[in-house]
């Protein structure tokens, strides 16, 4: 069971750390200072969640690794994040689309996790749930503002949603690792969150005058370490310092 728990924690940690890295790439590049601050603030929340999850994973693994080794010294194929979160930022609309699709899932996810039989996961969830409420609201408001804005902003927001839609199927995929933990009352069955996710997305897209894309082929593989080409590039940036100067500290 501890092997499954370790894998599950690393998956969640990888999601948050990679998305955090992506948002951090906006630092100094956002359209205006308030958004620059907003995206790095969200990034910081996600780093905090990643640190808690990696630290707990390291403890469960019990092999003397720590949060930094898990984050900085694993290769691309060992990362098990959702493909959605590794997608490049694109324009601001696409970044908000990614935030919306992810946060609309994570809010009910953390809410449900607060009742996990694993006390540490429940405690991490209780904090994350408060933070993600703000992340979702932020992304939803921008989706509406851009979708229901000018023809140009509408077009870009729709493109962002359309481009990322094929990565949303992976939110609801589960394998034997998760099934064992779901049975034990530790993990959350993603299928049980589909209704909440659909309702949020539907409400926001409707208010944003955007179209919900047709469900078609869904791209999966991240949970098994099979990623799009973008993760490797992101990691080369994210892990550069520890790779170039092993064990450096300051």
């Amino acid at each position: 069971m501890s092997d499954a728990l370790f894998k599950y924690l690393v998956r969640l940690a990888d999601d948050t750390v990679i998305l955090s890295h992506r948002l951090g790439e906006w630092c100094g590049h956002a359209s205006h200072i308030e958004e620059d601050v907003a995206m790095t603030n969200i990034s910081l929340d996600l780093i905090g969640q990643a640190r808690n999850l990696y630290s707990y994973a390291a403890e469960v693994e019990g092999k003397g690794r720590d949060e930094d080794q898990l984050a900085y010294l694993r290769n691309e194929r060992e990362f098990t994040n959702l493909i959605l979160v590794e997608q490049p930022n694109g324009d601001f609309g696409k970044t908000m689309a990614r935030q919306l699709l992810y946060s609309a899932f994570m809010l009910p996810f953390w809410e449900a996790m607060m009742a996990s039989k694993d006390k540490q996961l429940a405690a991490i969830a209780a904090k994350a749930e408060k933070e993600v409420t703000y992340h979702l609201r932020h992304a939803a408001e921008w989706t509406i503002r851009l979708g229901d804005g000018t023809p140009e902003s509408h077009r870009r927001m729709q493109e962002g949603i359309d481009e990322l839609w094929m990565y949303t199927g992976e939110l609801f995929v589960k394998d034997e690792v998760e099934e064992r933990l779901i049975e034990a009352g530790i993990a959350i069955d993603p299928e049980s969150l589909r209704g909440a996710w659909e309702r949020t997305i539907e409400e926001v897209l409707t208010r944003a005058t955007l179209k919900r894309p047709e469900d078609g082929w869904m791209h999966v593989g991240g949970r098994n370490g099979v990623h799009t080409e973008h993760l490797g590039h992101a990691l080369s940036d994210f892990q550069y310092l520890q790779r170039a100067y092993p064990d450096c500290t300051w």
């Binding site: 601050v37 603030n41 929340d45 703000y134 979702l136 609201r137």
Partner: peptide, 27 residues
């Protein structure tokens, strides 16, 4: 999801305020 608190200005006490950003100088 879209609730906005009505916040009073700490300088003059007015409730006639608007939110500029959900995220400020600290988390």
């Amino acid at each position: 999801l879209f609730g906005e608190e009505s916040v009073n200005c700490p300088k003059c006490g007015s409730s006639h305020t608007e939110r500029i950003s959900e995220f400020g100088s600290t988390a």
